[in-house]
Simulated scan of single mutants.
Amino acid sequence: MTQIVSQTLLAHPEQISIYPASAIADFGSTLIVAPHPDDESLGCGGAIALLHQLGISVEVLVVSDGTQSHPNSLRYPAPALRDLRERETLAALAVLGNKVAVTFFRLKDGAVPNRNSNDFDFVVTRLQKYLSSRSLQTVFLPWRYDPHPDHRATWELLTTAIDTANLSLRQIEYLIWDWDPLQRKDATLPVNVKPWRLDISTVLDLKQQAIAAYRSQTTDLIDDDPQGFRLTPEMLAHFAHPWELYLEQT
């Protein structure tokens, strides 16, 4: 029986099987792919902390530069905002695990290439080189049907690079903007994708500290752009559970 993601999974996530932290002990070298700086902490902060504690190599790839969160700020024009958000990522990852490496691809925020973009193949080639230079076993990706186009495009880029490079990787997707009922869209869960939850209760405080490191996204740090982005308390509450929800390709 097929499931509708927004109506079933997100309406009653407590009905989804929950696994202990030890369940990820066999993930091996792991890559967390974040469309924007902060997605890794919001969606996978608990998993990152647990992997680090288990002694598993974990790396983060941030795809876009994050400069569209406050496009009209005079105090933080794009170069300064990019640098700020990268510093926030480094601070967040220092909380989750002091040996978590990070790579910033710095693609334009709001314009991550999708399959219909002229530069899609160019970025896929960059990603192939990046992935092939590492001995990865598991990759966390944004949910393929996430309401945000950068998230969907990131999934397309990574899965295309994985397939064309003939890499065999465990692929696990995480939700971000589907948690917002105003943006959520119904999507049928593919038959080869299994939902499960990870118990992150022992590292929940670390995850919350990592999210709080993104002051540009959670506070009025940048107060000179009336149209600037800020994560609402209601949205942040979805990432304060003692578990994280994942969709794994089987």
Rank of each mutant, 00 (worst) to 15 (best):
Y214C: 09
K185H: 12
V33F: 06
M235S: 11
K194N: 14
S69W: 10
W155T: 01
E234T: 12
R230K: 14
P142Q: 05
Q128T: 05
Q171Y: 03
N72L: 15
I4C: 11
S132R: 12
S69L: 02
D83V: 09
E86I: 10
D146R: 01
V5T: 07
I222G: 10
H148T: 07
I24E: 04
Y246S: 08
W179S: 02
P77C: 14
S17G: 12
Y214T: 08
F229P: 09
T67I: 07
M235P: 11
A111V: 00
P79W: 11
D205G: 14
A101F: 11
F105Y: 14
A47D: 13
F27P: 10
H70K: 06
Q7M: 11
P77V: 08
D223C: 13
V112P: 00
W179P: 02
V60F: 13
E173H: 06
D119G: 01
V112N: 01
H52W: 13
A78Y: 05
V5E: 02
L81I: 11
L10M: 08
A25G: 11
S17P: 04
D223V: 05
R75G: 15
L84N: 14
I24N: 09
P113K: 00
P147H: 06
E248I: 07
F122L: 06
G97M: 13
R230L: 04
L169E: 04
T125I: 14
L107K: 03
R230T: 10
C44T: 13
A21M: 11
S201V: 05
R85Q: 10
N192H: 07
V33Q: 03
V95N: 10
N114Y: 01
H36S: 08
L236W: 00
R152F: 06
V203H: 07
L141G: 03
I32D: 06
D83G: 08
A11N: 12
G110R: 08
V124A: 03
F27T: 06
I176C: 07
E173F: 11
L81R: 06
Q68R: 07
E40D: 15
P77Y: 02
S135A: 13
L42I: 01
S41A: 15
T188A: 15
D146M: 02
K129W: 12
I56V: 13
L169V: 02
A153H: 00
S73W: 06
I16V: 14
Q227K: 15
N114R: 02
L182G: 12
D186M: 04
L31H: 11
I222C: 10
V191Q: 15
L245S: 08
V139S: 01
L136H: 03
P142T: 12
R106C: 01
T103I: 13
Y19K: 15
H148R: 02
W177F: 05
R106Q: 01
S6P: 03
V60P: 12
D65Q: 10
R134T: 07
E88L: 04
L84W: 11
L84F: 09
A101V: 12
F140M: 09
G55N: 03
A210H: 10
D220V: 12
F122K: 08
A49L: 09
P190S: 03
